[in-house]
Protein backbone atom coordinates (compact mmCIF):
# COMPACT_ATOMS: atom_id res chain seq x y z
CA UNK A 1 0.00 0.00 0.00
CA UNK A 2 1.28 3.46 -0.95
CA UNK A 3 -0.10 6.11 1.35
CA UNK A 4 -0.88 9.53 -0.16
CA UNK A 5 -2.34 12.77 1.25
CA UNK A 6 -5.98 13.21 0.27
CA UNK A 7 -8.19 16.32 0.13
CA UNK A 8 -11.88 15.36 -0.19
CA UNK A 9 -13.50 18.83 -0.12
CA UNK A 10 -16.79 19.87 1.49
CA UNK A 11 -19.21 18.38 -1.01
CA UNK A 12 -17.60 14.93 -0.88
CA UNK A 13 -18.36 14.94 2.84
CA UNK A 14 -22.05 15.75 2.34
CA UNK A 15 -24.01 15.61 -0.92
CA UNK A 16 -21.36 13.64 -2.83
CA UNK A 17 -20.38 11.06 -0.22
CA UNK A 18 -20.72 8.42 -2.91
CA UNK A 19 -17.81 10.06 -4.76
CA UNK A 20 -15.65 10.07 -1.60
CA UNK A 21 -16.45 6.47 -0.61
CA UNK A 22 -16.05 5.02 -4.11
CA UNK A 23 -12.77 6.93 -4.65
CA UNK A 24 -11.25 5.54 -1.44
CA UNK A 25 -12.49 2.01 -2.22
CA UNK A 26 -11.20 2.01 -5.79
CA UNK A 27 -7.73 3.30 -4.90
CA UNK A 28 -7.45 0.88 -1.99
CA UNK A 29 -8.11 -1.90 -4.50
CA UNK A 30 -5.35 -0.48 -6.70
CA UNK A 31 -2.85 -0.37 -3.82
CA UNK A 32 -3.17 3.28 -2.78
CA UNK A 33 -4.29 4.28 0.68
CA UNK A 34 -5.69 7.84 0.67
CA UNK A 35 -4.86 9.60 3.96
CA UNK A 36 -7.30 12.44 4.64
CA UNK A 37 -5.59 15.73 5.57
CA UNK A 38 -6.13 16.68 9.21
CA UNK A 39 -8.04 19.96 9.81
CA UNK A 40 -8.55 20.75 6.13
CA UNK A 41 -10.83 23.66 5.20
CA UNK A 42 -12.99 24.63 2.25
CA UNK A 43 -10.77 25.70 -0.68
CA UNK A 44 -13.25 28.33 -1.88
CA UNK A 45 -14.70 26.33 -4.80
CA UNK A 46 -13.85 28.99 -7.39
CA UNK A 47 -10.40 30.46 -8.00
CA UNK A 48 -10.36 34.20 -7.51
CA UNK A 49 -9.40 35.80 -10.82
CA UNK A 50 -8.50 39.32 -9.78
CA UNK A 51 -4.94 40.36 -9.05
CA UNK A 52 -5.29 42.08 -5.70
CA UNK A 53 -7.40 39.91 -3.43
CA UNK A 54 -4.91 37.76 -1.60
CA UNK A 55 -7.43 37.06 1.14
CA UNK A 56 -9.27 34.72 -1.23
CA UNK A 57 -6.02 32.80 -1.84
CA UNK A 58 -5.56 32.11 1.86
CA UNK A 59 -7.99 29.15 2.00
CA UNK A 60 -6.19 26.95 -0.55
CA UNK A 61 -2.77 27.82 0.92
CA UNK A 62 -3.83 26.80 4.45
CA UNK A 63 -4.67 23.38 3.04
CA UNK A 64 -1.26 23.14 1.40
CA UNK A 65 0.32 23.87 4.81
CA UNK A 66 -1.69 20.89 6.13
CA UNK A 67 -0.08 18.79 3.40
CA UNK A 68 3.38 19.93 4.55
CA UNK A 69 2.45 19.04 8.12
CA UNK A 70 1.36 15.58 7.03
CA UNK A 71 4.53 15.11 4.97
CA UNK A 72 6.53 15.88 8.12
CA UNK A 73 5.05 12.86 9.89
CA UNK A 74 5.51 9.24 9.00
CA UNK A 75 2.02 8.78 7.61
CA UNK A 76 2.50 9.21 3.85
CA UNK A 77 4.83 7.54 1.35
CA UNK A 78 4.08 9.54 -1.80
CA UNK A 79 3.96 13.26 -0.85
CA UNK A 80 1.66 14.45 -3.66
CA UNK A 81 -1.81 15.69 -2.72
CA UNK A 82 -4.61 13.68 -4.32
CA UNK A 83 -7.80 15.66 -5.10
CA UNK A 84 -10.91 14.03 -6.63
CA UNK A 85 -13.20 17.09 -6.87
CA UNK A 86 -12.66 18.94 -10.16
CA UNK A 87 -13.41 22.36 -8.66
CA UNK A 88 -11.16 21.91 -5.62
CA UNK A 89 -8.43 20.62 -7.93
CA UNK A 90 -8.68 23.72 -10.12
CA UNK A 91 -8.55 26.10 -7.14
CA UNK A 92 -5.72 24.35 -5.29
CA UNK A 93 -3.58 23.93 -8.38
CA UNK A 94 -4.01 27.51 -9.57
CA UNK A 95 -3.44 29.01 -6.13
CA UNK A 96 -0.30 26.89 -5.82
CA UNK A 97 0.95 28.09 -9.21
CA UNK A 98 0.22 31.70 -8.29
CA UNK A 99 2.32 31.36 -5.14
CA UNK A 100 5.19 29.83 -7.10
CA UNK A 101 5.07 32.67 -9.63
CA UNK A 102 4.69 35.43 -7.03
CA UNK A 103 6.97 34.94 -4.03
CA UNK A 104 5.87 38.36 -2.76
CA UNK A 105 2.27 37.18 -2.54
CA UNK A 106 3.36 34.03 -0.75
CA UNK A 107 5.30 36.07 1.78
CA UNK A 108 2.26 38.25 2.50
CA UNK A 109 0.06 35.20 3.00
CA UNK A 110 2.61 33.52 5.25
CA UNK A 111 2.84 36.70 7.35
CA UNK A 112 -0.94 36.72 7.61
CA UNK A 113 -0.99 33.06 8.70
CA UNK A 114 1.28 33.63 11.70
CA UNK A 115 -0.67 31.17 13.85
CA UNK A 116 0.27 28.23 11.60
CA UNK A 117 2.97 25.79 12.63
CA UNK A 118 5.05 26.54 9.52
CA UNK A 119 5.02 28.84 6.49
CA UNK A 120 4.01 27.45 3.10
CA UNK A 121 7.13 26.73 1.09
CA UNK A 122 5.41 26.44 -2.29
CA UNK A 123 6.56 22.91 -3.03
CA UNK A 124 3.44 20.76 -2.70
CA UNK A 125 2.46 18.91 -5.86
CA UNK A 126 -1.22 18.40 -6.61
CA UNK A 127 -2.58 15.52 -8.64
CA UNK A 128 -6.12 14.74 -9.73
CA UNK A 129 -7.46 11.21 -9.18
CA UNK A 130 -7.78 10.76 -12.97
CA UNK A 131 -4.10 11.63 -13.43
CA UNK A 132 -3.27 9.11 -10.73
CA UNK A 133 -5.31 6.47 -12.58
CA UNK A 134 -3.38 7.32 -15.73
CA UNK A 135 -0.14 6.69 -13.85
CA UNK A 136 -1.46 3.36 -12.62
CA UNK A 137 -2.23 2.75 -16.32
CA UNK A 138 -5.31 1.56 -18.16
CA UNK A 139 -3.53 -1.76 -18.71
CA UNK A 140 -3.28 -2.55 -15.00
CA UNK A 141 -6.87 -1.44 -14.41
CA UNK A 142 -7.97 -3.77 -17.19
CA UNK A 143 -6.18 -6.66 -15.52
CA UNK A 144 -8.04 -6.07 -12.28
CA UNK A 145 -11.52 -5.90 -13.84
CA UNK A 146 -13.73 -8.69 -12.47
CA UNK A 147 -16.99 -7.81 -14.20
CA UNK A 148 -16.24 -6.26 -17.62
CA UNK A 149 -19.00 -3.76 -18.36
CA UNK A 150 -19.73 -5.33 -21.74
CA UNK A 151 -22.52 -3.67 -23.65
CA UNK A 152 -22.89 -0.74 -21.26
CA UNK A 153 -22.91 2.48 -23.29
CA UNK A 154 -21.09 5.12 -21.29
CA UNK A 155 -20.78 8.80 -22.19
CA UNK A 156 -17.88 10.57 -20.43
CA UNK A 157 -18.47 14.22 -19.47
CA UNK A 158 -15.48 16.40 -18.57
CA UNK A 159 -16.94 19.82 -17.86
CA UNK A 160 -14.60 22.78 -17.34
CA UNK A 161 -12.39 22.67 -14.31
CA UNK A 162 -10.24 19.67 -15.24
CA UNK A 163 -9.33 21.01 -18.68
CA UNK A 164 -9.36 24.76 -18.54
CA UNK A 165 -7.40 26.98 -18.35
CA UNK A 166 -4.51 25.27 -20.14
CA UNK A 167 -1.99 25.46 -17.31
CA UNK A 168 -4.07 23.24 -15.01
CA UNK A 169 -5.42 20.91 -17.72
CA UNK A 170 -5.01 17.21 -16.94
CA UNK A 171 -5.36 16.38 -20.66
CA UNK A 172 -5.67 18.11 -24.04
CA UNK A 173 -8.19 20.92 -23.32
CA UNK A 174 -9.93 20.57 -26.69
CA UNK A 175 -9.67 16.82 -27.22
CA UNK A 176 -9.20 14.86 -24.00
CA UNK A 177 -9.15 11.05 -23.95
CA UNK A 178 -8.50 10.21 -20.28
CA UNK A 179 -12.06 9.26 -19.32
CA UNK A 180 -12.57 7.42 -22.62
CA UNK A 181 -9.38 5.33 -22.27
CA UNK A 182 -10.29 4.34 -18.83
CA UNK A 183 -13.95 3.56 -19.62
CA UNK A 184 -12.71 1.25 -22.37
CA UNK A 185 -10.36 -0.47 -19.91
CA UNK A 186 -13.45 -1.36 -17.86
CA UNK A 187 -14.93 -3.11 -20.87
CA UNK A 188 -17.70 -0.58 -21.44
CA UNK A 189 -18.57 0.93 -24.79
CA UNK A 190 -17.60 4.61 -25.06
CA UNK A 191 -20.12 6.79 -26.82
CA UNK A 192 -19.03 10.20 -28.05
CA UNK A 193 -21.06 13.19 -26.92
CA UNK A 194 -19.91 16.32 -28.73
CA UNK A 195 -21.14 18.33 -25.72
CA UNK A 196 -18.76 16.58 -23.33
CA UNK A 197 -16.59 19.69 -22.79
CA UNK A 198 -19.49 22.16 -22.56
CA UNK A 199 -20.13 24.00 -19.32
CA UNK A 200 -23.07 22.66 -17.27
CA UNK A 201 -23.83 26.14 -15.93
CA UNK A 202 -21.80 25.70 -12.74
CA UNK A 203 -22.74 27.99 -9.82
CA UNK A 204 -25.44 29.71 -11.92
CA UNK A 205 -27.58 26.82 -10.64
CA UNK A 206 -28.20 28.78 -7.41
CA UNK A 207 -29.87 31.80 -9.01
CA UNK A 208 -30.53 30.84 -12.67
CA UNK A 209 -32.04 27.36 -12.54
CA UNK A 210 -33.81 27.68 -15.87
CA UNK A 211 -30.68 28.73 -17.71
CA UNK A 212 -28.79 25.75 -16.29
CA UNK A 213 -31.65 23.43 -17.21
CA UNK A 214 -31.35 24.54 -20.85
CA UNK A 215 -27.62 23.81 -20.88
CA UNK A 216 -28.24 20.46 -19.21
CA UNK A 217 -30.92 19.61 -21.78
CA UNK A 218 -28.41 20.30 -24.54
CA UNK A 219 -25.70 18.15 -22.91
CA UNK A 220 -27.98 15.24 -21.98
CA UNK A 221 -29.62 15.20 -25.41
CA UNK A 222 -26.14 15.10 -26.99
CA UNK A 223 -25.46 11.94 -24.98
CA UNK A 224 -28.92 10.55 -25.79
CA UNK A 225 -28.41 11.02 -29.54
CA UNK A 226 -25.10 9.15 -29.23
CA UNK A 227 -27.04 6.30 -27.60
CA UNK A 228 -25.70 6.61 -24.03
CA UNK A 229 -27.15 4.54 -21.15
CA UNK A 230 -25.14 6.40 -18.57
CA UNK A 231 -23.06 9.57 -18.11
CA UNK A 232 -19.92 9.66 -15.96
CA UNK A 233 -18.41 12.79 -14.38
CA UNK A 234 -15.54 13.79 -12.09
CA UNK A 235 -17.08 16.91 -10.57
CA UNK A 236 -19.74 17.08 -7.83
CA UNK A 237 -21.22 20.28 -9.25
CA UNK A 238 -21.44 18.91 -12.82
CA UNK A 239 -22.93 15.79 -11.35
CA UNK A 240 -25.55 17.79 -9.43
CA UNK A 241 -26.50 19.97 -12.39
CA UNK A 242 -26.59 17.15 -14.94
CA UNK A 243 -28.66 14.97 -12.65
CA UNK A 244 -31.02 17.24 -10.66
CA UNK A 245 -31.60 19.92 -13.30
CA UNK A 246 -32.99 17.22 -15.60
CA UNK A 247 -36.19 17.83 -13.62
CA UNK A 248 -36.48 21.38 -14.97
CA UNK A 249 -35.12 20.28 -18.40
CA UNK A 250 -37.87 17.66 -18.60
CA UNK A 251 -40.55 20.21 -17.68
CA UNK A 252 -39.31 22.69 -20.29
CA UNK A 253 -38.64 20.24 -23.15
CA UNK A 254 -41.14 17.48 -23.92
CA UNK A 255 -38.56 15.42 -25.86
CA UNK A 256 -36.04 15.32 -23.02
CA UNK A 257 -34.65 11.85 -22.32
CA UNK A 258 -33.67 11.02 -18.74
CA UNK A 259 -30.14 9.61 -18.43
CA UNK A 260 -28.58 8.68 -15.09
CA UNK A 261 -25.32 10.37 -14.02
CA UNK A 262 -22.70 8.73 -11.77
CA UNK A 263 -19.06 9.30 -10.83
CA UNK A 264 -16.40 7.46 -12.82
CA UNK A 265 -15.18 5.89 -9.55
CA UNK A 266 -18.61 4.32 -9.01
CA UNK A 267 -18.47 2.81 -12.49
CA UNK A 268 -15.01 1.54 -11.71
CA UNK A 269 -16.07 0.00 -8.39
CA UNK A 270 -18.75 -1.89 -10.28
CA UNK A 271 -16.24 -3.33 -12.76
CA UNK A 272 -13.65 -4.12 -10.10
CA UNK A 273 -16.29 -6.03 -8.16
CA UNK A 274 -16.00 -3.91 -4.99
CA UNK A 275 -19.57 -2.84 -4.79
CA UNK A 276 -22.45 -0.85 -5.99
CA UNK A 277 -23.63 0.47 -2.65
CA UNK A 278 -22.11 3.92 -2.20
CA UNK A 279 -25.45 5.63 -1.71
CA UNK A 280 -25.90 9.16 -2.98
CA UNK A 281 -29.09 11.05 -3.73
CA UNK A 282 -30.21 11.15 -7.34
CA UNK A 283 -33.00 12.65 -9.39
CA UNK A 284 -32.51 10.04 -12.14
CA UNK A 285 -31.86 6.83 -10.23
CA UNK A 286 -29.01 4.84 -11.81
CA UNK A 287 -29.78 1.71 -9.78
CA UNK A 288 -32.33 0.04 -12.13
CA UNK A 289 -29.73 0.20 -14.93
CA UNK A 290 -26.82 -0.91 -12.76
CA UNK A 291 -28.81 -3.68 -11.03
CA UNK A 292 -29.98 -5.06 -14.37
CA UNK A 293 -26.42 -5.02 -15.54
CA UNK A 294 -25.05 -6.75 -12.45
CA UNK A 295 -27.66 -9.52 -12.66
CA UNK A 296 -26.78 -10.15 -16.27
CA UNK A 297 -23.08 -10.27 -15.39
CA UNK A 298 -23.51 -12.62 -12.46
CA UNK A 299 -25.92 -14.84 -14.37
CA UNK A 300 -23.30 -15.21 -17.09
CA UNK A 301 -20.55 -16.40 -14.77
Amino acid sequence: MTRMPYYPGCTLKTKAQNYDLSTRAVFRELGIDLVELPRWNCCGAVFSLVTDDLLRQVAPITNLIRVQELQGTDSVDDPRLVVPCAMCFNVLKRANARMKDNPEDLKKINDFLYLESQPYRGEVQIIHTLELLKEISAKRIKEQVKFPLLGLKVSPYYGCNLLRPKDVAIDNPENPTLLEDFTQALGAEVVFNNRRLRCCGSYQTVSEKGLVADLVYDIIMGAARAGADLIITACPLCSFNLDWRQKEAMEAHSDHKLIPVIYYTELMALALGIGNGFGGEHFVDPQPLLQKFLEKEKGGI
Binding site: N41, C42, L55, A59, F112
Partner: peptide, 26 residues
Protein backbone atom coordinates in the same frame (compact mmCIF):
# COMPACT_ATOMS: atom_id res chain seq x y z
CA UNK B 1 -16.34 31.72 4.84
CA UNK B 2 -12.94 32.63 3.37
CA UNK B 3 -10.99 30.38 5.78
CA UNK B 4 -8.92 33.44 6.70
CA UNK B 5 -8.72 32.38 10.35
CA UNK B 6 -9.37 35.91 11.65
CA UNK B 7 -12.00 34.51 14.04
CA UNK B 8 -9.51 32.10 15.59
CA UNK B 9 -6.98 34.91 16.04
CA UNK B 10 -9.39 37.13 17.99
CA UNK B 11 -11.13 34.47 20.14
CA UNK B 12 -10.55 35.22 23.86
CA UNK B 13 -11.31 31.58 24.68
CA UNK B 14 -8.57 30.45 22.27
CA UNK B 15 -10.99 28.22 20.37
CA UNK B 16 -10.28 26.94 16.87
CA UNK B 17 -13.19 29.03 15.58
CA UNK B 18 -12.43 28.64 11.87
CA UNK B 19 -12.16 24.89 12.29
CA UNK B 20 -15.68 24.65 13.69
CA UNK B 21 -17.08 27.02 11.07
CA UNK B 22 -15.52 24.75 8.43
CA UNK B 23 -16.94 21.69 10.18
CA UNK B 24 -20.37 23.35 9.91
CA UNK B 25 -19.80 23.95 6.18
CA UNK B 26 -19.35 20.23 5.73
Amino acid sequence: CLSCNTCTKICPQELQVMDFVQAAVR
